[in-house]
Design a protein around this nucleic acid. Structure first.
Lengths: 242, 242
DNA sequence: TTGTCCTTCCCCAGATCAGGGGAAGGCGCG
DNA sequence: CGCGCCTTCCCCTGATCTGGGGAAGGACAA
Protein backbone atom coordinates (compact mmCIF):
# COMPACT_ATOMS: atom_id res chain seq x y z
CA UNK A 1 0.00 0.00 0.00
CA UNK A 2 1.67 3.17 -1.14
CA UNK A 3 1.07 6.32 0.82
CA UNK A 4 -1.66 8.40 -0.73
CA UNK A 5 -3.22 11.49 0.71
CA UNK A 6 -6.91 10.82 1.17
CA UNK A 7 -7.85 14.36 2.05
CA UNK A 8 -10.83 15.31 -0.04
CA UNK A 9 -11.02 11.86 -1.60
CA UNK A 10 -14.45 11.22 -0.25
CA UNK A 11 -15.81 14.41 -1.76
CA UNK A 12 -14.34 13.69 -5.14
CA UNK A 13 -15.67 10.16 -5.12
CA UNK A 14 -19.12 11.08 -3.92
CA UNK A 15 -19.31 13.71 -6.63
CA UNK A 16 -18.46 10.97 -9.10
CA UNK A 17 -21.19 8.81 -7.61
CA UNK A 18 -23.75 11.55 -8.03
CA UNK A 19 -23.09 11.74 -11.72
CA UNK A 20 -22.85 8.01 -12.37
CA UNK A 21 -25.37 6.89 -14.94
CA UNK A 22 -24.77 3.21 -15.42
CA UNK A 23 -23.09 0.15 -14.05
CA UNK A 24 -20.00 1.00 -16.09
CA UNK A 25 -19.68 4.22 -14.17
CA UNK A 26 -19.80 2.30 -10.93
CA UNK A 27 -17.12 0.01 -12.24
CA UNK A 28 -14.99 3.00 -13.13
CA UNK A 29 -15.74 4.49 -9.76
CA UNK A 30 -14.54 1.47 -7.87
CA UNK A 31 -11.25 1.88 -9.71
CA UNK A 32 -11.31 5.53 -8.85
CA UNK A 33 -11.79 4.77 -5.17
CA UNK A 34 -8.99 2.24 -5.29
CA UNK A 35 -6.65 4.85 -6.72
CA UNK A 36 -7.78 7.69 -4.48
CA UNK A 37 -7.11 5.59 -1.41
CA UNK A 38 -4.09 3.77 -2.78
CA UNK A 39 -5.26 0.25 -2.10
CA UNK A 40 -5.36 -2.87 -4.19
CA UNK A 41 -9.06 -3.58 -4.55
CA UNK A 42 -12.46 -2.05 -4.04
CA UNK A 43 -15.48 -4.23 -4.61
CA UNK A 44 -19.21 -3.94 -4.32
CA UNK A 45 -20.78 -7.38 -4.21
CA UNK A 46 -24.47 -8.08 -4.16
CA UNK A 47 -25.59 -11.47 -2.90
CA UNK A 48 -29.11 -12.29 -3.86
CA UNK A 49 -31.37 -14.45 -1.79
CA UNK A 50 -31.62 -17.00 -4.58
CA UNK A 51 -27.87 -17.38 -5.00
CA UNK A 52 -27.59 -14.85 -7.78
CA UNK A 53 -24.59 -12.64 -7.58
CA UNK A 54 -23.76 -9.35 -9.09
CA UNK A 55 -21.41 -6.54 -8.44
CA UNK A 56 -18.56 -4.50 -9.65
CA UNK A 57 -15.07 -3.84 -8.53
CA UNK A 58 -11.43 -4.19 -9.21
CA UNK A 59 -10.96 -7.93 -8.79
CA UNK A 60 -9.47 -9.60 -11.83
CA UNK A 61 -11.87 -11.21 -14.23
CA UNK A 62 -10.16 -14.53 -13.65
CA UNK A 63 -10.87 -14.35 -9.94
CA UNK A 64 -14.49 -13.36 -10.41
CA UNK A 65 -15.05 -16.26 -12.81
CA UNK A 66 -13.30 -18.69 -10.53
CA UNK A 67 -15.32 -17.44 -7.57
CA UNK A 68 -18.56 -18.01 -9.40
CA UNK A 69 -17.52 -21.27 -10.95
CA UNK A 70 -16.43 -22.77 -7.66
CA UNK A 71 -19.42 -21.30 -5.84
CA UNK A 72 -17.07 -19.74 -3.33
CA UNK A 73 -19.92 -17.65 -2.03
CA UNK A 74 -20.90 -20.67 0.03
CA UNK A 75 -17.65 -20.88 1.92
CA UNK A 76 -16.14 -17.41 1.64
CA UNK A 77 -15.52 -16.39 5.26
CA UNK A 78 -16.01 -12.76 4.32
CA UNK A 79 -19.53 -13.45 3.12
CA UNK A 80 -20.29 -15.84 5.93
CA UNK A 81 -18.80 -13.56 8.56
CA UNK A 82 -20.53 -10.42 7.38
CA UNK A 83 -23.74 -12.29 6.95
CA UNK A 84 -23.97 -12.87 10.66
CA UNK A 85 -22.59 -9.56 11.79
CA UNK A 86 -23.99 -6.12 12.22
CA UNK A 87 -20.88 -4.15 11.70
CA UNK A 88 -18.02 -3.70 9.29
CA UNK A 89 -15.29 -6.18 9.92
CA UNK A 90 -11.60 -6.58 9.27
CA UNK A 91 -10.83 -9.82 7.51
CA UNK A 92 -8.24 -10.81 10.08
CA UNK A 93 -11.00 -11.06 12.65
CA UNK A 94 -13.04 -13.52 10.65
CA UNK A 95 -12.90 -17.25 11.12
CA UNK A 96 -10.37 -18.71 8.69
CA UNK A 97 -9.86 -21.92 10.57
CA UNK A 98 -11.81 -24.35 8.42
CA UNK A 99 -10.01 -26.24 5.74
CA UNK A 100 -12.30 -24.90 3.05
CA UNK A 101 -11.63 -21.33 4.21
CA UNK A 102 -7.87 -21.75 4.13
CA UNK A 103 -8.01 -23.23 0.66
CA UNK A 104 -10.19 -20.36 -0.45
CA UNK A 105 -7.81 -17.79 0.99
CA UNK A 106 -4.79 -19.31 -0.74
CA UNK A 107 -6.68 -19.31 -4.01
CA UNK A 108 -7.79 -15.73 -3.53
CA UNK A 109 -4.32 -14.43 -2.81
CA UNK A 110 -3.03 -16.28 -5.84
CA UNK A 111 -5.56 -14.33 -7.88
CA UNK A 112 -4.47 -10.92 -6.68
CA UNK A 113 -6.74 -10.43 -3.70
CA UNK A 114 -4.94 -8.73 -0.85
CA UNK A 115 -4.41 -10.45 2.47
CA UNK A 116 -5.91 -7.54 4.36
CA UNK A 117 -9.47 -6.46 3.93
CA UNK A 118 -12.33 -4.49 5.41
CA UNK A 119 -15.88 -5.35 4.47
CA UNK A 120 -19.05 -3.49 5.24
CA UNK A 121 -22.33 -5.40 5.22
CA UNK A 122 -25.31 -3.60 3.74
CA UNK A 123 -28.83 -4.85 4.21
CA UNK A 124 -32.16 -4.16 2.66
CA UNK A 125 -35.74 -4.48 3.81
CA UNK A 126 -36.29 -8.08 2.77
CA UNK A 127 -33.04 -9.77 3.50
CA UNK A 128 -31.27 -8.17 0.59
CA UNK A 129 -27.60 -8.25 1.27
CA UNK A 130 -24.57 -6.63 -0.24
CA UNK A 131 -20.97 -6.09 0.72
CA UNK A 132 -18.66 -3.20 0.17
CA UNK A 133 -15.08 -4.31 0.50
CA UNK A 134 -11.70 -2.71 0.28
CA UNK A 135 -8.55 -4.75 0.47
CA UNK A 136 -4.83 -4.58 0.13
CA UNK A 137 -1.61 -6.48 0.67
CA UNK A 138 0.26 -5.12 3.63
CA UNK A 139 1.11 -5.86 7.22
CA UNK A 140 -1.39 -5.71 10.05
CA UNK A 141 -0.22 -2.42 11.51
CA UNK A 142 -0.30 -0.59 8.19
CA UNK A 143 -3.78 -1.86 7.50
CA UNK A 144 -5.06 -1.07 10.97
CA UNK A 145 -3.78 2.45 10.48
CA UNK A 146 -5.43 2.72 7.09
CA UNK A 147 -8.76 1.56 8.51
CA UNK A 148 -8.46 3.86 11.47
CA UNK A 149 -8.04 6.80 9.14
CA UNK A 150 -10.54 5.78 6.47
CA UNK A 151 -13.21 3.82 8.28
CA UNK A 152 -15.69 6.64 8.09
CA UNK A 153 -15.09 7.23 4.42
CA UNK A 154 -15.63 3.56 3.71
CA UNK A 155 -18.91 3.48 5.56
CA UNK A 156 -20.16 6.49 3.66
CA UNK A 157 -18.93 5.08 0.39
CA UNK A 158 -20.67 1.79 1.12
CA UNK A 159 -23.92 3.64 1.74
CA UNK A 160 -23.79 5.75 -1.33
CA UNK A 161 -22.38 3.09 -3.57
CA UNK A 162 -25.22 0.83 -2.60
CA UNK A 163 -27.78 3.53 -3.12
CA UNK A 164 -26.47 4.27 -6.55
CA UNK A 165 -26.31 0.60 -7.45
CA UNK A 166 -29.95 0.22 -6.47
CA UNK A 167 -30.96 3.33 -8.37
CA UNK A 168 -29.34 1.91 -11.46
CA UNK A 169 -30.80 -1.56 -11.05
CA UNK A 170 -34.26 -1.11 -9.65
CA UNK A 171 -35.18 -4.70 -10.38
CA UNK A 172 -32.68 -5.82 -7.80
CA UNK A 173 -35.45 -5.47 -5.26
CA UNK A 174 -37.68 -8.27 -6.49
CA UNK A 175 -38.71 -9.74 -3.17
CA UNK A 176 -41.81 -7.79 -2.42
CA UNK A 177 -42.59 -7.41 1.21
CA UNK A 178 -44.86 -10.15 2.45
CA UNK A 179 -47.22 -9.47 5.28
CA UNK A 180 -47.84 -12.57 7.29
CA UNK A 181 -50.81 -12.66 9.60
CA UNK A 182 -50.07 -12.87 13.34
CA UNK A 183 -51.00 -16.53 13.41
CA UNK A 184 -48.81 -17.27 10.45
CA UNK A 185 -45.95 -15.54 12.19
CA UNK A 186 -46.61 -17.59 15.32
CA UNK A 187 -46.66 -20.79 13.37
CA UNK A 188 -43.49 -20.17 11.38
CA UNK A 189 -41.66 -18.83 14.38
CA UNK A 190 -42.31 -21.94 16.42
CA UNK A 191 -41.44 -24.18 13.50
CA UNK A 192 -38.19 -22.26 13.11
CA UNK A 193 -37.20 -23.06 16.67
CA UNK A 194 -37.68 -26.74 16.09
CA UNK A 195 -41.21 -27.46 17.18
CA UNK A 196 -43.07 -30.20 15.35
CA UNK A 197 -46.50 -29.41 13.95
CA UNK A 198 -48.12 -31.17 16.86
CA UNK A 199 -46.10 -29.13 19.33
CA UNK A 200 -46.86 -25.89 17.55
CA UNK A 201 -50.55 -26.68 17.48
CA UNK A 202 -50.66 -27.42 21.16
CA UNK A 203 -48.52 -24.39 22.00
CA UNK A 204 -50.87 -22.16 20.08
CA UNK A 205 -53.88 -24.03 21.45
CA UNK A 206 -55.30 -24.74 18.04
CA UNK A 207 -55.89 -27.95 16.19
CA UNK A 208 -53.19 -29.29 13.97
CA UNK A 209 -55.54 -28.91 11.04
CA UNK A 210 -55.88 -25.23 11.70
CA UNK A 211 -52.19 -24.92 12.05
CA UNK A 212 -51.76 -26.44 8.64
CA UNK A 213 -53.97 -23.81 7.12
CA UNK A 214 -51.60 -21.15 8.46
CA UNK A 215 -48.56 -22.92 7.23
CA UNK A 216 -50.09 -23.41 3.80
CA UNK A 217 -51.20 -19.83 3.63
CA UNK A 218 -47.79 -18.58 4.71
CA UNK A 219 -46.21 -20.91 2.17
CA UNK A 220 -48.25 -19.41 -0.61
CA UNK A 221 -47.52 -15.86 0.44
CA UNK A 222 -43.84 -16.61 0.61
CA UNK A 223 -43.78 -18.53 -2.61
CA UNK A 224 -42.39 -21.52 -0.79
CA UNK A 225 -42.81 -25.12 -1.81
CA UNK A 226 -42.63 -26.69 1.63
CA UNK A 227 -42.46 -25.83 5.29
CA UNK A 228 -38.70 -25.68 5.54
CA UNK A 229 -38.60 -23.40 2.54
CA UNK A 230 -41.26 -21.17 4.03
CA UNK A 231 -39.37 -20.84 7.30
CA UNK A 232 -36.17 -20.09 5.44
CA UNK A 233 -37.77 -17.38 3.33
CA UNK A 234 -39.58 -15.87 6.27
CA UNK A 235 -36.29 -15.63 8.14
CA UNK A 236 -34.48 -14.15 5.19
CA UNK A 237 -37.07 -11.48 4.73
CA UNK A 238 -37.27 -10.66 8.35
CA UNK A 239 -40.92 -11.69 8.36
CA UNK A 240 -40.13 -13.65 11.49
CA UNK A 241 -37.38 -13.09 14.02
CA UNK A 242 -36.25 -15.97 16.14
CA UNK B 1 -33.51 25.24 14.96
CA UNK B 2 -30.89 27.70 16.08
CA UNK B 3 -27.72 27.98 14.11
CA UNK B 4 -24.96 25.87 15.60
CA UNK B 5 -21.57 25.23 14.11
CA UNK B 6 -21.21 21.52 13.60
CA UNK B 7 -17.54 21.58 12.73
CA UNK B 8 -15.83 18.92 14.76
CA UNK B 9 -19.10 17.78 16.32
CA UNK B 10 -18.80 14.34 14.90
CA UNK B 11 -15.36 13.87 16.40
CA UNK B 12 -16.46 15.02 19.82
CA UNK B 13 -19.49 12.77 19.74
CA UNK B 14 -17.67 9.70 18.48
CA UNK B 15 -15.08 10.19 21.19
CA UNK B 16 -17.93 10.21 23.67
CA UNK B 17 -19.29 7.04 22.12
CA UNK B 18 -15.97 5.30 22.50
CA UNK B 19 -15.94 5.88 26.19
CA UNK B 20 -19.60 5.06 26.84
CA UNK B 21 -19.99 2.28 29.35
CA UNK B 22 -23.68 1.85 29.80
CA UNK B 23 -27.07 2.67 28.48
CA UNK B 24 -27.09 5.82 30.60
CA UNK B 25 -24.06 7.06 28.71
CA UNK B 26 -25.90 6.50 25.45
CA UNK B 27 -28.81 8.43 26.82
CA UNK B 28 -26.49 11.28 27.77
CA UNK B 29 -24.87 11.02 24.39
CA UNK B 30 -28.12 11.41 22.51
CA UNK B 31 -28.59 14.64 24.42
CA UNK B 32 -25.06 15.61 23.56
CA UNK B 33 -25.69 15.02 19.87
CA UNK B 34 -28.86 17.03 20.06
CA UNK B 35 -26.97 19.96 21.54
CA UNK B 36 -23.94 19.68 19.28
CA UNK B 37 -26.14 19.83 16.20
CA UNK B 38 -28.68 22.22 17.63
CA UNK B 39 -31.76 20.18 16.92
CA UNK B 40 -34.73 19.17 19.03
CA UNK B 41 -34.42 15.40 19.30
CA UNK B 42 -32.06 12.54 18.70
CA UNK B 43 -33.34 9.02 19.19
CA UNK B 44 -32.07 5.49 18.80
CA UNK B 45 -34.95 3.03 18.68
CA UNK B 46 -34.69 -0.73 18.47
CA UNK B 47 -37.74 -2.49 17.10
CA UNK B 48 -38.29 -6.18 17.42
CA UNK B 49 -40.80 -7.90 15.21
CA UNK B 50 -42.59 -9.32 18.20
CA UNK B 51 -43.30 -5.84 19.45
CA UNK B 52 -40.41 -5.57 21.87
CA UNK B 53 -38.94 -2.13 21.91
CA UNK B 54 -35.93 -0.55 23.43
CA UNK B 55 -33.88 2.51 22.88
CA UNK B 56 -32.76 5.83 24.17
CA UNK B 57 -33.07 9.40 23.13
CA UNK B 58 -34.34 12.82 23.92
CA UNK B 59 -38.04 12.30 23.52
CA UNK B 60 -40.01 13.21 26.60
CA UNK B 61 -40.88 10.44 28.96
CA UNK B 62 -44.54 11.21 28.45
CA UNK B 63 -44.23 10.66 24.73
CA UNK B 64 -42.31 7.43 25.10
CA UNK B 65 -44.91 6.07 27.48
CA UNK B 66 -47.74 7.15 25.26
CA UNK B 67 -46.04 5.60 22.26
CA UNK B 68 -45.68 2.28 24.02
CA UNK B 69 -49.08 2.38 25.61
CA UNK B 70 -50.86 3.09 22.36
CA UNK B 71 -48.67 0.65 20.46
CA UNK B 72 -47.84 3.41 18.00
CA UNK B 73 -45.08 1.25 16.61
CA UNK B 74 -47.76 -0.45 14.53
CA UNK B 75 -48.86 2.70 12.75
CA UNK B 76 -45.89 5.04 13.01
CA UNK B 77 -45.16 5.95 9.37
CA UNK B 78 -41.51 6.43 10.26
CA UNK B 79 -41.21 2.84 11.39
CA UNK B 80 -43.36 1.51 8.57
CA UNK B 81 -41.59 3.55 5.94
CA UNK B 82 -38.08 2.77 7.08
CA UNK B 83 -38.95 -0.86 7.47
CA UNK B 84 -39.37 -1.21 3.76
CA UNK B 85 -36.66 1.13 2.62
CA UNK B 86 -32.96 0.75 2.12
CA UNK B 87 -31.88 4.27 2.73
CA UNK B 88 -32.24 7.08 5.20
CA UNK B 89 -35.38 9.03 4.64
CA UNK B 90 -36.78 12.45 5.39
CA UNK B 91 -40.08 12.28 7.18
CA UNK B 92 -41.76 14.56 4.67
CA UNK B 93 -41.31 11.90 2.04
CA UNK B 94 -43.10 9.23 4.01
CA UNK B 95 -46.74 8.33 3.62
CA UNK B 96 -48.77 10.34 6.12
CA UNK B 97 -52.04 9.96 4.28
CA UNK B 98 -53.85 7.47 6.48
CA UNK B 99 -56.03 8.81 9.22
CA UNK B 100 -54.12 6.87 11.84
CA UNK B 101 -50.89 8.43 10.64
CA UNK B 102 -52.27 11.95 10.78
CA UNK B 103 -53.62 11.37 14.26
CA UNK B 104 -50.29 9.99 15.30
CA UNK B 105 -48.44 12.99 13.90
CA UNK B 106 -50.67 15.45 15.70
CA UNK B 107 -50.17 13.57 18.94
CA UNK B 108 -46.41 13.44 18.39
CA UNK B 109 -46.10 17.16 17.76
CA UNK B 110 -48.17 17.84 20.82
CA UNK B 111 -45.60 15.87 22.80
CA UNK B 112 -42.63 17.84 21.59
CA UNK B 113 -41.62 15.86 18.54
CA UNK B 114 -40.51 18.09 15.71
CA UNK B 115 -42.36 18.21 12.41
CA UNK B 116 -39.16 17.61 10.46
CA UNK B 117 -37.17 14.43 10.78
CA UNK B 118 -34.53 12.24 9.23
CA UNK B 119 -34.41 8.56 10.07
CA UNK B 120 -31.74 6.04 9.23
CA UNK B 121 -32.71 2.36 9.17
CA UNK B 122 -30.17 -0.04 10.61
CA UNK B 123 -30.45 -3.74 10.02
CA UNK B 124 -28.95 -6.83 11.52
CA UNK B 125 -28.33 -10.32 10.27
CA UNK B 126 -31.77 -11.78 10.91
CA UNK B 127 -34.17 -8.99 10.39
CA UNK B 128 -33.10 -7.12 13.47
CA UNK B 129 -34.07 -3.57 12.96
CA UNK B 130 -33.28 -0.26 14.57
CA UNK B 131 -33.73 3.38 13.72
CA UNK B 132 -31.55 6.38 14.34
CA UNK B 133 -33.58 9.52 14.09
CA UNK B 134 -32.94 13.21 14.38
CA UNK B 135 -35.74 15.71 14.28
CA UNK B 136 -36.57 19.32 14.71
CA UNK B 137 -39.24 21.94 14.24
CA UNK B 138 -38.45 24.18 11.32
CA UNK B 139 -39.42 24.87 7.75
CA UNK B 140 -38.65 22.55 4.86
CA UNK B 141 -35.81 24.59 3.42
CA UNK B 142 -33.99 24.93 6.73
CA UNK B 143 -34.29 21.23 7.34
CA UNK B 144 -33.20 20.29 3.84
CA UNK B 145 -30.16 22.44 4.35
CA UNK B 146 -29.42 20.84 7.70
CA UNK B 147 -29.66 17.35 6.22
CA UNK B 148 -27.55 18.32 3.27
CA UNK B 149 -24.83 19.47 5.61
CA UNK B 150 -25.10 16.74 8.20
CA UNK B 151 -26.26 13.68 6.34
CA UNK B 152 -22.86 12.06 6.50
CA UNK B 153 -22.47 12.73 10.18
CA UNK B 154 -25.86 11.20 10.87
CA UNK B 155 -25.05 8.04 8.96
CA UNK B 156 -21.81 7.63 10.87
CA UNK B 157 -23.52 8.36 14.14
CA UNK B 158 -26.21 5.81 13.38
CA UNK B 159 -23.55 3.19 12.71
CA UNK B 160 -21.55 3.85 15.80
CA UNK B 161 -24.50 4.42 18.05
CA UNK B 162 -25.89 1.09 16.99
CA UNK B 163 -22.58 -0.62 17.47
CA UNK B 164 -22.24 0.74 20.95
CA UNK B 165 -25.81 -0.15 21.82
CA UNK B 166 -25.17 -3.73 20.73
CA UNK B 167 -21.88 -3.88 22.61
CA UNK B 168 -23.73 -2.90 25.73
CA UNK B 169 -26.51 -5.42 25.13
CA UNK B 170 -24.74 -8.52 23.96
CA UNK B 171 -27.86 -10.70 24.09
CA UNK B 172 -29.10 -8.87 21.08
CA UNK B 173 -26.31 -10.25 18.93
CA UNK B 174 -26.48 -13.63 17.25
CA UNK B 175 -24.71 -16.83 18.22
CA UNK B 176 -21.31 -17.77 17.05
CA UNK B 177 -20.73 -19.64 13.85
CA UNK B 178 -20.57 -23.37 13.50
CA UNK B 179 -18.37 -24.83 10.82
CA UNK B 180 -20.34 -27.10 8.58
CA UNK B 181 -18.59 -29.31 6.07
CA UNK B 182 -19.05 -28.41 2.39
CA UNK B 183 -21.46 -31.29 1.92
CA UNK B 184 -23.46 -30.26 4.92
CA UNK B 185 -23.61 -26.76 3.53
CA UNK B 186 -24.79 -28.12 0.18
CA UNK B 187 -27.44 -30.20 1.83
CA UNK B 188 -28.86 -27.47 4.06
CA UNK B 189 -28.64 -24.89 1.31
CA UNK B 190 -30.72 -26.96 -1.06
CA UNK B 191 -33.18 -27.80 1.67
CA UNK B 192 -33.47 -24.11 2.43
CA UNK B 193 -34.50 -23.37 -1.13
CA UNK B 194 -37.28 -25.89 -0.94
CA UNK B 195 -35.81 -29.11 -2.29
CA UNK B 196 -37.08 -32.36 -0.83
CA UNK B 197 -34.57 -34.87 0.41
CA UNK B 198 -34.95 -36.89 -2.78
CA UNK B 199 -34.30 -33.81 -4.89
CA UNK B 200 -31.31 -32.80 -2.84
CA UNK B 201 -29.84 -36.27 -3.08
CA UNK B 202 -30.23 -36.39 -6.82
CA UNK B 203 -28.95 -32.83 -7.23
CA UNK B 204 -25.85 -33.71 -5.25
CA UNK B 205 -25.63 -37.07 -6.97
CA UNK B 206 -25.54 -39.00 -3.75
CA UNK B 207 -27.90 -41.50 -2.24
CA UNK B 208 -30.64 -40.30 -0.01
CA UNK B 209 -29.12 -42.31 2.81
CA UNK B 210 -25.88 -40.42 2.48
CA UNK B 211 -27.73 -37.20 2.38
CA UNK B 212 -29.36 -38.08 5.64
CA UNK B 213 -26.00 -38.53 7.27
CA UNK B 214 -25.14 -34.96 6.33
CA UNK B 215 -28.39 -33.59 7.57
CA UNK B 216 -28.06 -35.46 10.84
CA UNK B 217 -24.51 -34.36 11.28
CA UNK B 218 -25.41 -30.75 10.56
CA UNK B 219 -28.32 -31.05 12.96
CA UNK B 220 -26.04 -32.15 15.73
CA UNK B 221 -23.53 -29.43 15.07
CA UNK B 222 -26.24 -26.85 15.07
CA UNK B 223 -28.01 -28.25 18.08
CA UNK B 224 -31.18 -28.57 16.06
CA UNK B 225 -33.97 -31.02 16.70
CA UNK B 226 -35.20 -31.40 13.14
CA UNK B 227 -34.41 -30.42 9.60
CA UNK B 228 -36.40 -27.21 9.58
CA UNK B 229 -34.75 -26.16 12.79
CA UNK B 230 -31.33 -26.95 11.38
CA UNK B 231 -31.97 -24.87 8.28
CA UNK B 232 -33.27 -22.00 10.38
CA UNK B 233 -30.25 -22.03 12.66
CA UNK B 234 -27.84 -22.37 9.78
CA UNK B 235 -29.42 -19.33 8.16
CA UNK B 236 -29.39 -17.33 11.36
CA UNK B 237 -25.75 -18.06 11.97
CA UNK B 238 -24.82 -17.38 8.41
CA UNK B 239 -23.54 -20.94 8.09
CA UNK B 240 -25.40 -21.08 4.81
CA UNK B 241 -26.26 -18.32 2.41
CA UNK B 242 -29.30 -18.81 0.28
C1' DT C 1 -73.10 -3.67 2.05
C1' DT C 2 -70.26 -6.54 -0.11
C1' DG C 3 -66.12 -8.51 -0.50
C1' DT C 4 -61.65 -9.91 1.22
C1' DC C 5 -58.90 -11.64 4.65
C1' DC C 6 -58.14 -14.02 9.14
C1' DT C 7 -59.27 -17.55 12.19
C1' DT C 8 -60.93 -21.88 13.40
C1' DC C 9 -62.52 -26.63 12.58
C1' DC C 10 -62.87 -31.42 9.96
C1' DC C 11 -61.56 -35.89 6.58
C1' DC C 12 -58.18 -38.90 4.22
C1' DA C 13 -54.35 -41.27 1.61
C1' DG C 14 -49.83 -41.30 0.03
C1' DA C 15 -45.31 -39.26 0.34
C1' DT C 16 -41.69 -38.01 3.21
C1' DC C 17 -38.89 -37.76 7.26
C1' DA C 18 -36.65 -39.28 11.64
C1' DG C 19 -34.01 -42.29 14.28
C1' DG C 20 -31.39 -46.15 15.39
C1' DG C 21 -28.13 -49.28 13.74
C1' DG C 22 -23.35 -50.66 10.87
C1' DA C 23 -19.35 -50.21 7.40
C1' DA C 24 -16.03 -48.57 4.04
C1' DG C 25 -12.24 -45.61 1.93
C1' DG C 26 -9.85 -41.01 1.93
C1' DC C 27 -7.59 -37.09 3.86
C1' DG C 28 -4.84 -34.42 6.91
C1' DC C 29 -2.82 -33.50 11.58
C1' DG C 30 0.20 -34.56 15.13
C1' DC D 1 1.07 -44.44 12.03
C1' DG D 2 -2.95 -43.79 14.39
C1' DC D 3 -6.92 -40.75 15.23
C1' DG D 4 -10.40 -37.93 13.82
C1' DC D 5 -13.24 -36.03 10.39
C1' DC D 6 -15.46 -36.22 5.79
C1' DT D 7 -17.64 -38.86 2.36
C1' DT D 8 -20.22 -42.59 0.70
C1' DC D 9 -23.30 -46.61 0.99
C1' DC D 10 -27.01 -49.91 3.21
C1' DC D 11 -30.98 -51.92 6.51
C1' DC D 12 -35.58 -51.00 8.86
C1' DT D 13 -40.15 -49.08 11.15
C1' DG D 14 -43.09 -45.77 12.86
C1' DA D 15 -43.99 -40.97 13.14
C1' DT D 16 -44.75 -36.84 10.56
C1' DC D 17 -45.78 -34.00 6.79
C1' DT D 18 -48.12 -32.83 2.33
C1' DG D 19 -51.82 -32.47 -0.84
C1' DG D 20 -56.26 -32.05 -2.08
C1' DG D 21 -61.08 -31.29 -0.50
C1' DG D 22 -65.10 -28.26 2.41
C1' DA D 23 -67.29 -24.93 5.99
C1' DA D 24 -68.20 -21.08 9.18
C1' DG D 25 -68.04 -16.81 11.95
C1' DG D 26 -65.67 -12.36 12.62
C1' DA D 27 -63.00 -8.20 11.41
C1' DC D 28 -62.02 -4.56 8.43
C1' DA D 29 -61.99 -1.84 4.28
C1' DA D 30 -64.09 -0.03 -0.10
Amino acid sequence: MGYVSTIGSIDRVLAGLDSAEGIDDLQALSERIRDEYGITNVVYHWVNSNGDQYGCGTYSEAWVLRYLERKYVRIDPVILGCYQRFHPVEWKRLDWSSRAARGFLADAIEHGVGNQGYSIPIRGPNGQFALFTCNDSCDDATWADFIERNRRDMILLAHDFNRKALDLEPDRTPDRAVTLSPREVDALTLLAVGYSRAQVASTLSISEHTLRVYIESARHKLGAVNTTHAVARALQRGAIVV
